[in-house]
Design a protein around this nucleic acid. Structure first.
Length: 846
DNA sequence: AGCCACTCGATTTT
DNA sequence: ACGAAAATCGAGTGGCT
């Protein structure tokens, strides 16, 4: 029979000495089903030039590996014309009976005469399956089902039906798959996994929501279900999860907390944490934070996705659910003071239930918000949801490459070995980008240009990749600018013939442009009817031309935005990927050369702009700021167009903006202009603050807020005298001890374990205090402290945690926080803020 | 004890 | 374990006077 199927989750297993891929997903009727497909593990032996395949094949056919009660052998071989790093090679594709033995098999085929090298044995089986069969995650396909003994192994699964795929192929115009998402959250008495009890579990999948608890009160809200005890609560939760029949189970930091905690408590009570379809508990993969996997229900830890993919684009200072959800979905968690736990009355419990439910609701909202992004990443890098939500950018870049190699008949490069990564890590750093040293001052009428995806467009334009690297110059080669590598000046050369690496990157850049345009146009349509849709190309045809009504749904709009964003992130990460020690396609020369091109381009462009009579005031990597010098905006834009025509390849300079005023300050204790530290106000009144203490989380709120207000007053009103008054007010408040403790807290993130610090700064002292108080502090923990009065010489001796009844140190906050934050700004106006404040002190004395 | 040069460590910018 | 380097700046450290 035939059926429609969308795969969501993948894994593989052995049956009678062979590998099978097991997929869980939905059929056309929305039933959760399991589809099993046969897939044999395989790899390539690449032949040495001049050697034939027959002798090699004869030899490997005899190789067997017996291990763990199974015997792996060669099933089949095929001689194929392939490419490796763009060069033609002859490969023997070898199919074997078990992927788990691939590594062992390959080592037995090591020093074989005629075999140059071996590849693709280190690619996960599921990745190879998706790549080769085109059965992509979240893409509908047609399955021709059939009988097979292997179905015995999946008969017990808690799904609507199980099928064996006789054949399987993606559908041409499948619908978009919308998953059912169930969010959950637990409240516990302990902070460590398994230490203490779970008091309640909350869940939310849209309208279906509730809290299960064994801490009964007489009139609990109707959404609370009270059960006998903790074990019963865990079992009831499993039951609810299974009945809910979601595709995705999601939590926030649930890999690191909720799921392992549940598992530990379930183990303690000897009940099965049976959340999935196989009647067994979750499994945890190795790693710094072990990934929790539930069979047939994709467990997604949203924190990990946000951390890996989104964090650098968020304003949030911590990645707490509260902050991230606040920023992304405008939803805040409820507050609950955990100190109340010690002594709870009925009303406290009601608050706690409500708080817990809200956590699950907010997590669900966040999951719905991020789904378009997860979905796009899945479609682009063609890896399952489970992996896409946990992989870092470098892995995304690599997976995107791996899944597209077949179009180039390319055999994949291998992953570097341990020794190799260590060797790469040991290598010296290479020179990075160029930053222009600004002259401190207050400027007016500023223009800023910046290059769009500068590194990526240079890589594409000059074919900068390891594959194209050549030892000498030539007509068919690009010659890089001169740069220093490992102590001597050098140039490198790249063949002009494009290969898969730069082709794929240029596709990413194109698709990003396409999605960005579609998004912009769709938004135009959505906001004020059908307009600005001039092109007739299919991606731009977003209007129903008959009735001129917008036909773009909000979901589609979000899709374009997510797609544009995913391609942008992928493009931006590609440069870093080439210089990343763990990369299959690592090329230190390419990474260093890219930076040499980056420096040359910014210098040449700066010369071009100043050559046209403009005064450059700043620039960093890919941006240039200069004074418009009375020229109109139209003239500037015309000038930009003119320069753009002179760039080679896909290099493009963009208008970042026009700014009415801007301030650049000097480095501390110096007259030299500080780099990466400036504030601008754009012509529409938007303020852009970069690098200042205002935007640094390791400064106290008092200094940050004051500096922000000072900068704003100076930029919007040009009123440094008014700003001076702001400082005086704060100084007075500080001295009269009128400042809220909250504004004096200094927050830092631990970058290593407490004992691993060579020099122990104040935050380490604070961390030690926290540990004394029973808090576990490790890498990633946020430490908050204030500096109080005391005799200690070091700041670290006067560090106190929130709630400690110690007077704050006025001198410290004045001299080390408040004044330093504004000193440089007033210097620009020749105002000595220290003298001003001291003067005030003198006046008071008199 | 105080100054100075230096290193360490956290954070931000691109 | 899972993109890159440039840059600022506070705090601590150890040698010197």
């Amino acid at each position: 029979m035939e059926l429609e199927f969308v795969p969501v989750d993948y894994d593989y297993f052995d049956f009678e000495g062979r590998n099978y891929v097991r997929m869980i997903g939905r059929d056309g009727d929305g039933r959760k089903i399991c589809v099993v497909d046969s897939y044999d593990a395989n790899f390539y032996l690449v032949l040495r030039e001049g050697y034939g395949a027959d002798a090699v094949i004869d030899k490997i056919n005899d190789i067997e590996v017996s291990k763990g009660g199974r015997t792996s052998k060669v099933l089949k071989t095929e001689v194929m014309d392939k490419h490796f790093l763009g060069e033609k090679v002859v490969g023997i594709r070898v199919w074997i009976s078990n992927h788990k033995d691939a590594h062992e098999m390959i080592s037995l085929m090591g020093d074989m005469e005629g075999v140059d090298f071996r590849r693709e044995w280190d690619i996960p089986l599921v990745t190879k399956y998706i790549k080769e069969k085109g059965v992509e995650p979240l893409v509908w396909c047609n399955v021709e089902t059939g009988d097979h003994d292997v179905l015995r192994t999946v008969e017990g699964l808690d799904v609507a039906d199980v099928y064996f795929a006789e054949s399987i192929a993606p559908m041409k115009n499948g619908e978009k798959f919308v998953p059912k998402i169930l969010a959950y959250d637990i409240e516990t008495t302990g902070r460590e996994i398994g230490e203490g009890e779970i008091l309640m579990i909350s869940y939310c999948s849209g309208n279906e929501r509730g809290v299960i608890s064994w801490k009964g009160i007489d009139d609990a809200p109707e959404y609370v279900e009270i059960v006998e005890d903790e074990a019963a609560m865990i079992e009831r939760f499993c039951e609810i999860v299974r009945e809910n029949d979601a595709d995705i189970l999601t939590g926030y930091f649930s890999d690191g907390f909720d799921l392992p905690y549940l598992k530990a408590r379930a183990d303690y009570y000897k009940v099965v944490l049976d959340l999935g379809v196989n009647g067994r508990g979750p499994s945890f993969a190795r790693g710094r934070i072990p990934s929790g996997k539930v069979a047939g229900l994709v467990h997604v830890d949203l924190y990990r996705f946000v951390d890996a993919v989104f964090s650098q684009y968020l304003q949030s200072e911590t990645l707490s659910l509260n902050e991230v959800a606040g920023e992304l979905v405008g939803a805040r968690k409820e507050d609950f003071d955990f100190a109340r736990l010690a002594n709870m009355n009925e009303s406290d419990w009601r608050d706690f239930f409500s708080y817990s439910l809200q956590d699950a609701v907010v997590t669900h909202k966040l999951a719905m918000k991020l789904w378009p992004d997860v979905n796009e990443f899945c479609h682009i890098v063609k890896e399952p949801v489970f992996d896409v939500t946990r992989d870092r950018m470098a892995t995304h870049v690599e997976n995107h490459i791996l899944h597209n190699l077949d179009r180039f008949d390319e055999i994949a490069e291998r992953r570097p070995g341990h020794g190799e990564t260590n060797e790469r890590k040991m290598k010296r750093r290479f020179e990075g980008a160029f930053v222009f040293e600004p002259t401190p001052g207050f400027y007016e009428d500023i223009v800023m240009f910046d290059f769009t995806s500068m590194h990526s467009s240079l890589i594409v334009t000059y074919n900068i990749c390891g594959q194209a690297l050549r030892p000498s110059a030539g007509d068919d080669r690009y010659t890089s600018p001169e740069f220093e590598l490992d102590g001597h000046d050098t140039r490198v050369y790249f063949d002009k013939k494009v290969g898969f690496f730069t082709t794929l990157l240029s596709e990413i850049v194109d698709k990003r442009k396409e999605a960005k345009l579609a998004y912009a146009q769709a938004r135009g349509v959505g906001v004020s009817g059908c307009r600005g849709v001039g092109s007739s190309s299919s991606t731009n045809d977003l209007c129903n031309s008959k009735n001129r009504e917008p036909v773009i749904s909000k979901a589609e709009l979000n899709m374009f935005k997510a797609r544009s964003n995913a391609y942008k992130l992928l493009a931006n990460a590609t440069f870093g990927y080439q210089g990343f020690y763990g990369a299959r396609y690592y090329s230190r020369e390419a990474a260093a050369a890219t930076l040499a091109y980056v420096r040359k381009l910014i210098h040449d462009t700066m010369d071009r702009i100043s050559g046209a009579g403009f005064k450059i005031i700043y620039g960093d990597t890919d941006s240039i700021a200069f004074l418009s010098d009375g020229k109109s905006r139209e003239e500037i834009i015309g000038f930009l167009k003119e320069i753009n025509e002179e760039f080679p390849g896909i290099i493009e300079l963009d208008l970042e903006g026009f700014f009415d005023r801007g301030i650049f300050v000097a480095k501390r204790d110096s007259k030299v202009g500080a780099k990466k530290k400036y504030a601008l106000i754009s012509i529409d009144g938007k303020i852009k603050i970069r690098g200042f203490e205002t935007v640094r989380r390791d400064w106290c709120g008092l200094s940050r807020k004051l500096q922000d207000r000072v900068l704003r007053m100076i930029l919007t009103e040009g009123d440094e005298k008014g700003a001076l008054k702001l400082v005086r007010d704060v100084v007075d408040k500080l001295k009269s001890r009128d400042v809220e403790m909250e504004d004096l807290m200094i927050k830092t993130k631990m970058k290593r374990e407490v004992d691993d610090y060579v020099t122990a700064g104040p935050h380490v002292a604070a961390a030690r205090k926290m540990i004394e108080g029973g808090v576990r502090v490790g890498v990633g923990t946020f430490v908050e402290y204030f500096v109080g009065e005391g005799s200690g010489k070091r700041v670290g001796d006067r560090v106190f945690l929130a709630g400690e009844r110690v007077k704050y140190d006025v001198e410290y906050y004045l001299g080390r926080q408040v004044l330093p934050a504004v000193e440089g700004i007033f210097d620009v106006f020749n105002i000595d803020i220290n003298a001003e404040v001291k003067g005030e002190r003198q006046e008071k004395l008199f």
